[in-house]
Design a protein around this nucleic acid. Structure first.
Lengths: 218, 218
DNA sequence: CGGCATCCTCTTTGATACTG
DNA sequence: CAGTATCAAAGAGGATGCCG
C-alpha cells in the first residue's frame, strides 16, 4: 500500500495494516492461532488466493507474521503472528466492539464461521452474576447458504464473571441454540425475546431464562 | 467499498470504515471537532479532493458524519461526527497506540500537523507523579518541508495524573522543545536522551530533567 | 474562496485457471 | 497443499474546471 506520508501514529498503523483484507487475516490468526494457508482461506471466504499470498508476504516483510515450516509429522507451512502482530489485538477488539452495531441488520447471504462468535460474545456480553454456577450454552449455527465448513458448534462458557467462547460441544449444556447466527446473537444480546427468536426459526433447547445472567456490556 | 460479505463484527466495522482515508477523516473530526471542508483538506495532506468529497458522502450515508449548514455569521458547511462516528474513538486510540512503534523510524518527507501530537502523547505517556505540581511543555514543531500550516505550537499539560495536549502556547512553560516532530517525540518518549536530541538539532529551553516525570505507558 | 464534479491515468482487486 | 499466472473491472491519484 502506498504510504499516507503523514507523521501520525494512526496513519502509520494504517500504512502497515490498512490494506484491504489485512486486518481480517490478523483476525484469523488471533482467533485460530497458527494456521495453514488453507485454514486461512477457509476463514476468509471471499479472498482471492493471490491476494492472500500477497498479503502474507507483506505481513511477513512488516514483521507481523511469521512463516514456519512445521516439523516432519505436520510437514506443512504454518503462519503465526509475531509479538508485534499479536499486539494488534486491542485494535481488533475495539473495531469488533464498534462493529457489533451492524450485527443486528439482515445480512442473508453473508458467510459465517463459528469462531467469529468470539468477538461479539466476549466483547458485548458480561456475566452479571460472577458468583453463580458455571453455565454452558451450546451454539449450533445453521449454514444460511451452502457452506459446510461453517457449521461447527461452539460453546459459550460463563463462570466467575468471565464469558468465554470456544469451538466444540459441551458435555451437558444448560442451553442449546440452533439456528441462524443472527438469531443466536440476537437472543444472546437480548435484542430478541426467546419467543420472537423461536418464531423466527431458532431452535431453543433448555431454559432461555438463564440468559438473563448475560447482560450487554456498557 | 465492496462488502466483505462476512457476518463478523470486525468485517462489518471494516465494511463501514475500512476504505482508504476513511479512518483518517474520522481522526481529523475527533481531534479537531467540527470542520469545514478546507480544514479537513489541511488536516489530510495527500488526499485527492474528489476522494474527500466521496468519503464524506459515504460517511454521511452511513450515519457516521453529519453535515450542517452553519448559521449566517459562519455561512459555511460544517462536518461533524454523529454519536456512532464518535464511538470510533477507542478504535482510533488502539490503532494510534499500536502505531507508535513506527514513530521512531525516519520519515523525512512526511507531512505533520501539530494536533497529531495528541495520540502519541496522550496514549504513550503518563504522569508518574500525580501529586506533583502542574507542568507545561510547549512543543514547537519545525516544518521539515515547505508546510507552513504545520508549525503551530502545542502544549502538553501534565497535572494530577493526567497528560493532555492542546494547540496554542503556554503562559510560562517549564520546557520548550523546538525542532522536528520526531525529535520532540523521541525526547518525550525517552528513546532519546536530552543530549542526543540536542546534538541532532532539537532546541531545548528549560530543564529536560522534568521529563522524567513522564513515563511511557505499559 | 469553499465545495465539490469531471476527466484521465495508473494501481489494486477479484475471479479463475493452472502448477510444483 | 500452497501457492503463481493472467486478465478484466474497480478504485485511487492528480489536474483542472465549475458554480454560488
Amino acid at each position: 500500500m502506498r504510504s499516507y506520508g503523514q507523521y501520525c501514529s494512526v496513519a502509520k498503523a494504517l500504512d502497515a495494516v490498512g490494506d484491504r483484507w489485512t486486518l481480517l487475516i490478523v483476525r484469523e490468526l488471533l482467533l485460530q492461532g497458527p494456521c495453514r494457508y488453507t485454514d486461512l482461506r477457509n476463514g476468509l471466504p471471499g479472498i482471492a488466493t493471490n491476494l492472500l499470498a500477497d498479503r502474507l508476504h507483506e505481513l511477513e516483510a512488516a514483521g507481523l507474521v511469521r512463516r514456519e515450516e512445521a516439523a516432519p509429522p505436520v510437514a506443512t507451512t504454518l503462519f503465526s503472528l509475531t509479538e508485534a502482530g499479536a499486539a494488534l489485538e486491542p485494535s481488533l477488539e475495539a473495531l469488533g466492539a464498534w462493529g457489533i452495531r451492524y450485527m443486528a441488520e439482515p445480512a442473508d447471504d453473508d458467510e459465517f464461521r463459528s469462531h467469529w462468535f468470539t468477538f461479539p460474545v466476549e466483547l458485548f456480553l458480561h456475566d452479571s452474576a460472577p458468583d453463580g454456577p458455571p453455565l454452558a450454552i451450546e451454539l449450533r449455527p445453521a449454514s444460511p447458504a451452502a457452506s459446510r465448513a461453517s457449521s461447527r458448534p461452539a460453546v459459550v462458557e460463563v463462570s466467575g464473571g468471565e464469558v468465554r467462547t470456544r469451538l466444540g460441544s459441551a458435555a451437558s449444556p444448560d442451553l442449546i441454540l440452533d439456528g441462524s447466527p443472527r438469531l443466536i446473537l440476537g437472543l444472546l444480546g437480548a435484542y430478541l425475546t426467546p419467543a420472537d427468536a423461536e418464531a423466527l426459526g431458532l431452535s431453543v433447547t433448555g431454559d432461555p431464562a438463564i440468559l438473563r445472567r448475560l447482560q450487554p456490556a456498557s
